[in-house]
Design a protein around this nucleic acid. Sequence first.
DNA 1: TTGACTTATATGTCTAGACATATAATCGTG
DNA 2: CACGATTATATGTCTAGACATATAAGTCAA
Lengths: 242, 242
Amino acid sequence: MSLATDAADKPTLYKRIRADIEKCILTGEWPPGHRIPFEHELVARYGCSRMTVNKALSELAQADLIERRRRAGSFVRRPQHQSAVLKIADIRAEIISLGRSYGYELIGRKLRTATAADRARLGVKKSGKVVAIACRHSADNVPFAVEDRLIDLASVPNAATADFSREPPGSWLLHHVPWTEAEHTISAIVADHRAAKALDIAVGAPCLVIDRYTWRSARTITAVRLLYPGDSHRLVARFKGG
Amino acid sequence: MSLATDAADKPTLYKRIRADIEKCILTGEWPPGHRIPFEHELVARYGCSRMTVNKALSELAQADLIERRRRAGSFVRRPQHQSAVLKIADIRAEIISLGRSYGYELIGRKLRTATAADRARLGVKKSGKVVAIACRHSADNVPFAVEDRLIDLASVPNAATADFSREPPGSWLLHHVPWTEAEHTISAIVADHRAAKALDIAVGAPCLVIDRYTWRSARTITAVRLLYPGDSHRLVARFKGG
DNA sequence: TTGACTTATATGTCTAGACATATAATCGTG
DNA sequence: CACGATTATATGTCTAGACATATAAGTCAA
């Protein structure tokens, strides 16, 4: 193996140890299944205490690059299920970060007792109040996405009185419902008459659809469907690791 | 605040400390920007050494739940850029895990010196050899996705002699090119004549497109375009955190 | 008021030990 | 040979210190 042992220690020692090992894994020098040096070997090699080596290895294990087994040692993990980190920004923030002017328009807002369809969509059993919102986001005055949202007022009572004619519900929720879990489903459809009109595209044009269900501590907050013109919008996901 | 101090210590202490703090953050009890107790306060509260508290806080910082600032303290981070983990499995594995029968068909394979278009697609400057592959995946004998791939032989010389008539190139690469980075772009198109024929769908039907560029250590490996029928295929992404 | 200097302090890293615990390897026995 | 008991060992967690370092806050002079 070729662990660097004489590099200048600008970074801290444990970071250097971690980087050295990471390099051996990422270059393929240590293939999946390879046993990396024992802690005591690294202690000898780097002339430090075991806690320092342990911190480096613990972080590599946390990052799923290695697997640690008592008595056996630490091993390079084999390529996991591929997964990518997909950034799905708040639409307003996304448009602004693209350097374009953001436009927002509330199409409709209804406060109602949840219908059977609403309950199914939110995944709740009891019938409470909900807010249904339809709105449109635009970039440089060109339609960017249309949004169709349902908010469960049992989880977010404040949403009943929020003024969604000025602030998009997504941004409002981001600031009022801090920590959440969500599930996204991405699919493709062709624009029907209504969608074509809202997005100012041709009927039959491809659209990217993001369905997002958001909850906090097993409590449904909101369900939203975002419809983007498929030829102009792209979702980019970066990916790292086998 | 309400840190539990008397729970049974089945998990280790630092994990309990981490879980306690995480709970306060996730329930919203400690909102974004809130300063969490200093290390020395937690040391006193839990009656342990600072290293134990430090390990808990370091992991929370690594998970981006808190931000640590010297002299100032540790603070609950405000909702980051939303990001979701999108699992993009190897197609064969995906179909099999769905309990369906997997079918594979090589449509074409060409070994050629990279054309200008190939070089642009792979993002390489020098003109070397490439393999271009077109193939089709099916589930229960129904077309599932068509694949159009380019492999840079400078990075993966073995691919020149691999038998892609039996094993899909994605699976082959997964087993021969362990650690990689990739970028995915997801978009929607409508099926043209050729795609419609390959997927056995109507011309004009919506399709989900995944473009994936894979490299290792700044070295391009492969570029692939996967085309799925948009109405039958969905990408699901789980998301956690603000 | 403003800017430069000093100080206090919380985190960052590290040590040289310790005991706990899971388990691979070995040994003994039927 | 098969199987259960024992042992050795690598990791997991923890301690009670230490010094380094970035920086918020206070101090003082222009």
